[in-house]
Amino acid sequence: MKIIRSRSFTATRPWGALDIANMNGITTRLHWTDQPYKWHVNDGEEVFAVLDGRVEMRYREDGVERTTVLETGDVFYASVGTEHVAHPLGVARVLVVETQGSV
């Protein structure tokens, strides 16, 4: 059993993570960041939940770049093949659920 207070979690580098669980090859990780990630496509599906802060999520649909701002409590679902990049607006804490070893 674990209790994690996400608002007090920090890391030594952007996108540093705390591994919470690995359930049959699906990982759940808490990330802390104050810097953008990189454009990428995951090996499978990804659920991205903003627990603290705000994140500008950029993604491409049919070759067109789109953007939306995710507020605390918002969830972004990236289906297989969705190219995306997260840009925190200040400090953010994000819960990510994805296939183990995914980018």
Rank of each mutant, 00 (worst) to 15 (best):
R13K: 15
R93F: 01
D52I: 00
G90R: 01
W39F: 10
E61F: 02
Q35C: 09
T99C: 00
R5L: 08
I3Q: 11
E83N: 03
V50L: 07
T33A: 07
L95D: 01
G53P: 08
G63D: 10
V47K: 01
G73S: 03
H40I: 06
D52C: 03
D19Q: 13
H84R: 14
M57T: 08
V55S: 07
L70C: 05
R7F: 08
W32Q: 01
M23F: 12
D19L: 11
R29L: 08
V64C: 06
T12G: 14
H84V: 04
T67C: 12
G90C: 07
G53F: 10
R93A: 01
V85T: 09
K38R: 15
G90Y: 06
E71W: 02
P88Y: 03
A49L: 15
V94F: 08
R66E: 12
T82C: 13
V47E: 13
A49G: 03
T68Q: 15
E61V: 14
V103H: 10
L70V: 04
G90V: 04
V69W: 06
E46K: 01
E56H: 04
P14I: 06
A17L: 11
T82Q: 13
F48S: 02
E45R: 14
R7P: 00
R60N: 01
R29K: 15
G73R: 03
G53S: 11
R29I: 03
V41T: 14
D52G: 00
V75S: 03
E61Y: 04
V50W: 06
T10Y: 10
E45S: 12
